[in-house]
């Protein structure tokens, strides 16, 4: 990385070789793509995809995120290292969420009875009461 930083070939002193202006067409195209995707997400919410709903929504959101990162955030023109660290951060987010969520899902029943389990669980003592009552 520092190899770029210290290029003493005299170019960087006057040229604008580290500025990569993005063309207006690209910017507008990206914006319209994003708006279009937003419309699609809103529209899909009125259909019922069942279990795929979250996946669909997240997929569209991720496509939008990639567009923003690639063009608006100049990731394509940027140094690969910057892109790596940014994308890399999602690996850690993934670790964090997956472990924590996984553990919660596996343990939650032990302290918060689910509705379906509630009825049989409380039905039992009542039976004894009914039995013991006469």
């Amino acid at each position: 990385m520092s190899a770029h930083a210290h290029s003493d070939d005299g170019h960087s002193a006057d040229g604008h070789d580290f500025a990569h202006p993005m063309s207006v067409q690209t910017l507008l195209a990206v914006f319209f793509a994003l708006t279009f995707l937003t419309v699609i997400t809103v529209a899909q919410a009125s259909f019922d995809f069942g279990a795929f709903e979250v996946a669909t929504v997240m997929f569209i959101a991720t496509v939008k995120a990639v567009l923003v990162m690639a063009f608006f955030m100049h990731m394509l023109a940027d140094k690969p290292f910057n892109a790596i660290i940014f994308i890399g951060s999602f690996v850690f987010v993934g670790l964090f969420v997956i472990f924590t969520l996984g553990d919660s899902l596996m343990t939650s029943h032990s302290f918060e009875p689910k509705v379906e389990e509630l009825a049989p669980a409380v039905a039992e003592p009542t039976i004894t009461t009914v039995d013991g009552a006469p």
Binding site: M1, S2, A5, H6, D8, F81
Partner: peptide, 9 residues
Amino acid sequence: VTINTMRPP
């Protein structure tokens, strides 16, 4: 950042 970009030749 310092270690990445400020290393002298």
